[in-house]
């Protein structure tokens, strides 16, 4: 089965992935993804009826801890990596008019 990835699908994936692609990149991405899905489709040869999806190899239980501060005040160290900061806050572009 050959997959065909439409322009709309790549647009949608671009929105989900928060990526902006040039027309050339979109063309390549459609081709790459179709080929990869063709390859992945061979999993359909396997009957997995009744098999539980295994997200984790070992049975994991919730690991709980008390909600207390342990890391101390690292504000300045964390802000030092910010692309833009002002008065102890991260600056972001305008989000609404």
């Amino acid at each position: 089965m050959a997959n065909i990835i439409s322009e709309e699908t790549i647009e949608y994936v671009g929105i989900l992935a928060k990526l902006e692609l040039s027309d050339e990149e979109k063309k390549q991405a459609r081709k790459d993804m179709a080929r990869m899905l063709d390859y992945i489709d061979q999993l359909n040869e396997l009957d997995t009826e009744g098999v539980e999806p295994m997200s984790h190899v070992f049975s994991v239980e919730n690991v709980l801890r008390r909600d207390v501060v342990t890391g101390g005040d690292m504000r300045d160290a964390l802000l030092a990596n910010a692309p833009e900061e002002k008065d102890g806050m991260f600056v972001v572009p305008r989000t609404f008019e």
Binding site: G14, A17, L19, M33, M36
Partner: peptide
């Protein structure tokens, strides 16, 4: 990286 992020976004969509 972009190729895998896009594939991953698709298979989770």
């Amino acid at each position: 990286v972009k190729r895998r992020i896009m594939l991953g976004s698709f298979v989770l969509s």
